[in-house]
């Protein structure tokens, strides 16, 4: 699997899963644009780590929830590189609330970043992939169909992302663009710690048949595969990365390793 000569944009690429994806693609030869919104230091550090792998890295700040900022980001990429081969829609945000506490502000904020941005980025990316094809992979979550505490808005936004993935996959197929998504269960990141603080007791996490919790690198490996030519015939799918937990009946008992 080689991405030599390819240019990838990873939204929210400075930290957590986005960082792992950026490093994975870079390790296979891709030049990377690391988008970030709030944490510049983390993004600059990721870019430095990418450059240490012998490829190019560019850092672009943009709130992908703001259409004007998405346009600015893609204008910058277009002017600087004139192309894009891989788009990873990873940036996400959310407000932890139960359904009765959701207000319009929290809904719009989450949907704009987690769902609408995927559309806007895909539209702009598709133009930069014109005539050369490309890959788009978006990050969903098992919370799109499992009900997690205080996860309602994010879950809905991820459901929209998965449906959008199917539409993009079909409508962009004639342009030579492969579109897919991945959905992970709880992944060991800073965001997960925040989620525990806000609304969930860590002990409630179901045990995983695979024996441990999902890591950012587990997700990055699947994303990289979906960006490869080996995955050419996979279109519009959401690949689940959860060590088997979502299909496992609670009647099974597994030793808790994490």
């Amino acid at each position: 699997m080689s991405f030599e000569g390819k240019l990838a944009l990873v939204t929210g690429g400075g930290r957590g899963i986005g960082r792992a994806i950026a490093l994975k693609l870079a390790s296979q030869g891709a030049d990377i644009v690391v988008n970030f919104f709030r944490r510049r230091e983390a993004a600059e550090q990721t870019a430095e780590d990418i450059r240490a792998l012998g490829v190019k890295a560019e850092v672009i700040r943009a709130n992908v929830g703001d259409p004007a900022k998405v346009d600015e980001m893609f204008d910058t990429i277009g002017n600087k590189f004139g192309r894009l081969d891989i788009l990873i829609n990873n940036a996400a945000s959310g407000v932890g609330r139960s359904v009765m506490d959701i207000d319009v502000k929290a809904w719009d904020w989450t949907m704009d970043i987690n769902a609408r941005a995927c559309l806007l980025c895909a539209q702009r990316a598709a133009r930069l992939m014109e005539g050369r094809g490309g890959k788009i992979v978006s990050l969903s979550s098992l919370g799109s169909f499992l009900v997690w505490p205080t996860y309602a808005i994010v879950g809905v936004s991820k459901g929209a992302l998965e449906t959008l993935t199917r539409y993009l996959a079909i409508e962009l197929a004639p342009r030579g663009i492969c579109v897919n998504a991945v959905a992970a269960s709880f992944v060991e990141t800073e965001a997960l710690k925040f989620y525990f603080t806000e609304g969930l007791n860590q002990d409630n996490i179901p045990t995983t048949p695979a024996g441990r919790r999902v890591t950012p690198e587990d997700v990055a490996n699947v994303v990289a595969f979906l960006c490869s030519e080996e995955a050419f015939m996979i279109r519009g799918q959401t690949i689940i990365i959860d060590g088997g937990s979502s299909i496992c009946s609670p009647l099974f008992s597994f030793k808790k390793n994490d």
Binding site: R38, R39, R40, E41, R61, N63, S93, V95, K105, A106, W109
Partner: peptide
């Protein structure tokens, strides 16, 4: 103010003054 209020305030202040205020 909740976490969303805070981040929206930071974004609005950044835009009003044309500056960047990293979370750090």
């Amino acid at each position: 103010a909740d976490s969303l209020d805070i981040v929206q305030t930071l974004v609005a202040v950044e835009e009003a003054f044309g500056i960047e205020i990293p979370d750090e």
